[in-house]
Nucleic acid binder design. Structure first.
Length: 214
DNA sequence: CTCCGGATTCGT
DNA sequence: CGAATCCGGAGT
């Protein structure tokens, strides 16, 4: 069962964007995504995260990228998810409340960042697979390991970090002009039929996407 | 404890 | 296409 992918927010989100109106001008200030943004169906969050700005304040230096590719990992039965073994030490954060970073090391070399979603107790997260460099990037932002390297995000410092804090967060941004495309998740062939779920989302035409889903 | 293999990347 | 390189999870 799939979800719609029209790229719109599910409803009004008054905390997501602060608008200040004066007599002559209207200024819009970017804001951190609020907790309830993350507290929704994983696949909706994965889709809505496209175009948003991932920010890491790294020792006073702002490093930021616009998210262009995500993947949803949804529930205890998802055989592609790290949560498939239950709340193990590594995946325990996926079983906690939403709006927290789950950062892990893969193949002994690359760090990958996820955002925990949905209600506490239901293990789900969105893998941030690629971004478009915005500010202070140290490396290519193409690919999940590269994105973390570019923003200096590391498991030992950032795993379990609350995304409503001041060091690591995601800023709201206007809905992307690019169409959204989706397809099967990458490198999860071991997951049987779950590998076929079209839970990878990307902005069409972005050169930062690891490979076109369709 | 050992064994298997991975939500990747990079160079050949 | 395969090595790199650490560690999570399962089995004994």
């Amino acid at each position: 069962m799939d979800v719609d992918v029209d790229g719109s927010l599910a409803g009004p989100d008054p905390d997501a964007l602060a608008t200040t109106t004066t007599s002559k001008t209207t200024t819009t200030t970017t804001m951190k995504l609020p907790r309830h943004f993350y507290e929704r169906d994983t696949r909706i969050v994965a889709r809505d995260l496209l175009g948003k700005i991932l920010v890491h304040v790294d020792g006073g230096v702002r490093r930021a990228a616009r998210i262009v590719e995500t993947e949803a990992y949804h529930g205890p039965g998802d055989l592609a998810s790290h949560a498939r073994f239950g709340p193990t030490r590594r995946a325990a954060v996926m079983f906690g409340g939403p709006g927290v970073a789950y950062v892990y090391l893969i193949y002994g070399r690359s760090h990958c960042m996820n955002v925990v979603t949905g209600a506490a107790g239901f293990p789900a997260a969105v893998l941030l697979r690629a971004g478009e460099p915005v500010e202070g990037c140290l490396h290519s932002t193409r690919g999940p390991g590269n994105l973390c390297r570019a923003l200096a995000i590391r498991r030992e410092h950032d795993d379990g970090r609350d995304l409503l804090g001041d060091d690591l967060f995601i800023e709201d941004a206007p809905r992307p002009a690019e169409p959204i495309v989706r397809g099967p998740r990458v490198n999860v062939r071991y997951a049987g039929s779950w590998a076929e779920k079209p839970w990878r989302y990307a902005l069409a035409g972005s050169p930062w996407v690891t490979r076109p889903p369709v």
